[in-house]
Amino acid sequence: MPLRTLLASLALVLAGGAALGAATDGFRAFTTETARRIAVRDHPVAVPAVALQSQSGARLRFADFRGQWLLVDFIYTRCPTVCLALGGDFAQLQRLLAGPIATGRVRLLSISFDPAHDSPAQLAAYQQRFGDLGQGWLAARPLSADALLQLKRTFGITVIPDPYGGYTHNTAIHVVDPRGRLVEILDSGDAQRAAEDLRRRLGS
């Protein structure tokens, strides 16, 4: 009976190990944040064709950016914490990527997940605060609740209310290729690296 128990236990450990490997993308992703980075790298996803309104009040669609590389982040303009870092990243990216932005090959897009509050004027003020150069960086809000939901689902953005009347949300720099597919998710807080990543893609 010890032998049967040994065999049964070994089988359980092996099966458990295999299942654990499957549940963690081969022991690579133990958090949702890592998992979504691996998922889009392995299987790029098409971004939804939803309508947005920019900081100038103009209507945009993701299809308008076809043929360009797009760096996307998700923000809300009242955010006192991580969005400040993201805003700083994007202002820095605007300078680091000034060349490809001038030739129309790269665009930066900040999308608000708080469209009720973030009017075009608020979005423009948000960009002003970080020293927007006025070229290549768009801030926009989705025009419907459904559009916001689709964006959050596709990009893997989770927004939860915090105790101070604001939101806590996961942050990253999302790379959308000229065919309109989300192909890479980069850590925020490192504009230099994101710029290098994009230059490498432009070079290839």
């Binding site: 009976m1 128990t5 236990s9 359980l12 458990g16 549940a23 992703a29």
Partner: peptide, 22 residues
């Protein structure tokens, strides 16, 4: 399930999953 080992191994292995943040 000699000395309860198999059952406790099963419970332990299954528990690992529900400790993962993901």
């Amino acid at each position: 399930d000699y000395r309860g080992i198999t059952g406790l191994v099963l419970a332990s292995v299954a528990s690992v999953f529900w400790l993962l943040p993901r």
